[in-house]
């Protein structure tokens, strides 16, 4: 045992472990949510994950094609090639339409709120162990992104930045039970907050608890950010009311909210790095 404790391997193990724990403490103190090692690794290996992200979206966009085999006649092959070419054109067209829609919504928001500062980022990864739709973006603190910056898609809220390195940041979406957003229903003006539970998260839903028992909020109502905490600007769309249910613990009612965007389909998002009234 004594020999084991004095071995160079054990000493190295203890030194590295201590350094990692110290790094974690530094990240908590600095409120960046990422340790110095994490920052260094993300800078060095960032391009590799960006390349993988591009490959992944390339695979998803690839048209399904059945190439020629020995029994295909020449004419059939030529037709196939033509179909493939048209499919590729269609994919390119759909990409352009998607990009146009993305930028159009962004432009509307930009025109309405000139105080917003934006950064566009692509989704390049996700934690294999996470079940709440968190994802990693291709931009970090070198692009002005900080922890708690809101992440949006068009006028819709996606989530907040939870940790940041110089070239990467991790986003927790509205489907994470740890996220709370102050919110109001636009027709009735009832103010509460939007969060979720593991059960609702599984169904891609959020919940707005603490409504009065006789709430006038009904299914189909639109829920927006109230901007109370200073993390999210006011009036971004969270989603629509799917149902009203009674709370299990008290007499209040809760609205079940369907987020405005399908987080699993996102490929690009915008991060709001600054706005009037942002909490410092």
């Amino acid at each position: 045992m004594n020999r084991f404790l004095k071995s160079s391997g054990f000493k190295l193990f203890v030194i590295i472990l201590s350094a990692l724990i110290a790094g974690s403490v530094i990240s908590v103190v600095s409120k960046s949510g990422s340790s110095p090692l994490n920052k260094a690794v993300s800078v060095v290996f960032g391009p590799a994950s960006r390349l993988a992200g591009s490959l992944s979206s390339g695979f998803r966009n690839m048209p399904v094609s059945f190439r020629s085999s020995t029994y295909y006649k020449k004419q059939a092959e030529e037709l196939k090639k033509e179909v493939d070419s048209l499919r590729e054109q269609l994919v390119d067209y759909e990409d352009i339409v998607h990009q146009n829609e993305f930028y159009k919504e962004f432009l509307d928001l930009k025109e309405e709120h000139s105080d917003y500062k934006f950064t566009k980022a692509a989704i390049v990864g996700r934690d294999a162990a996470d079940r709440f739709s968190s994802f990693t973006l291709s931009k970090g603190s070198s692009s002005g992104i900080a922890v708690n910056n809101p992440v949006i898609y068009g006028k819709y809220v996606v989530g907040t930045v939870s940790s940041v390195t110089p070239t990467r940041c991790v986003v927790k979406t509205l489907l994470n039970p740890g996220i709370n957003v102050s919110a109001y229903e636009i027709r009735t003006g009832e103010v509460s907050y939007v969060t979720t539970t593991a059960e609702y998260s599984k169904q891609n839903l959020c919940v707005m608890p603490g409504l009065s028992p006789s709430t006038a909020v009904t299914a189909g109502g639109l829920v927006c950010t109230a901007g109370i905490s200073g993390i999210y600007p006011a009036d971004l769309i969270i989603g629509s009311v799917d149902d009203i249910v009674d709370a299990t613990a008290d007499i209040s009612a809760s609205a079940i909210i369907k987020p405005g965007v399908d987080f699993s389909q996102l490929t690009d998002v915008f991060i709001i790095t600054g706005f009037d009234g942002q909490a410092k």
């Binding site: 590295i16 990692l20 974690s24 990240s27 340790s35 090692l37 994950s49 996470d130 939870s162």
Partner: peptide
């Protein structure tokens, strides 16, 4: 282990949890 964990931490939101775990 340290290398694998540090790479995983780039995608995760939890300081150095993976680096420490894989080191061990």
């Amino acid at each position: 282990g340290l290398f694998a964990g540090a790479l995983w931490d780039v995608f995760a939101s939890g300081n150095s949890f993976n680096a420490i775990y894989f080191l061990i």
